[in-house]
Design a protein around this nucleic acid. Structure first.
Lengths: 157, 157
DNA sequence: GTAGAATAGTTTAATAATAGAACTATATCA
DNA sequence: TGATATAGTTCTATTATTAAACTATTCTAC
């Protein structure tokens, strides 16, 4: 790929990404119930799909420090949306699980977001949408690989 | 597009988007100099490309309230990365412009981010990258249209 | 031409997410 | 067993954010 073209593609990616994320986030924020933030919902959603994960796992997936996760988890716990379940094999470990209310809340929001995104996605023809998603997933996979960036950074000490 | 397929595409989009943004943000955060946050950089970058915009314009583009912009602008001003230039036609208006140091800082970061993104983008063949970007830009354009979501929300009465 | 409405931007107070360091408790390993 | 590593929390400070109240202007409709 030629140098100039690459630069253009990178620029265009940055610009589109910025717009899409800012707009979508704003739209999703509006769908949220008063008591839930986007990051809190993202946490609920992850736990909905991954029963019994831990703070450390969340910190890894979300690319933030563990103290950040503790704060979010505490807020969700205070709202009775999840519980902490100590592992009895390794007593350092605490599993996280949604309460019934947490699941309900998560499903309700997931539904609303689905409706929102569907409006935009249905504007593309099937083949274009599938190609796009396919490339997006490849990009995601490649970002997951080049993981040298972690440690030293989002883990304390 | 059939209902089940649509649901799958939306799910896949959500998952890929989450991964890509979290990872990329983490990687970019690491490139940042000590004194600059990602949001501050995004502000610099916008002003670099759009000379003489205003707080209100930034609030619109970034989909946040004006007081949020005031806070970021003040921090960048304190670091001597930008200046406020009052309009002498309409004295309510204040234009924002980068200082030379602001421009240098912005260019330096832009360069670093370019290098990072290039690593990933060059892994795709030219045609795939171009199709992807094309669809991404269409999505961005459509999100810009359905703007009913603003007002009442990110503008203070 | 003036009163009332709209607009641009700031201030203030409160909340959330975050980093980083210090800490507790537990487990692993050599 | 003693040193080291790991899981998670607490604490402190910073940043981004909202919402509401506010100042200073400009616009507008009468």
């Amino acid at each position: 790929m030629d140098r100039e073209l690459l630069k253009q593609i990178v620029d265009r990616y940055e610009a589109a990404n910025f717009l899409v994320n800012r707009r979508l986030n704003a739209m999703i924020r509006e769908l949220m119930p008063e008591e839930l933030t986007i990051d809190q919902f993202a946490t609920l959603r992850y736990l909905r799909m991954n029963e019994k994960s831990t703070s450390s796992e969340l910190a890894d997936i979300f690319c933030v420090g563990k103290s950040s996760i503790t704060a979010i988890i505490t807020r969700l716990f205070d709202k009775s949306l999840l519980v902490r379940i100590p592992d009895d094999k390794d007593r350092r470990v605490t599993y996280l699980a949604l309460t019934e209310e947490g699941k309900r809340m998560c499903d309700m929001m997931e539904e609303k977001i689905h409706t929102l995104l569907s409006k935009f996605i249905t504007q593309f023809d099937e083949q274009e949408a599938l190609s796009f998603i396919h490339t997006f997933e490849k990009l995601a996979a490649r970002l997951m690989q080049g993981e040298e960036y972690r440690d030293e950074n989002h883990t304390e000490v």
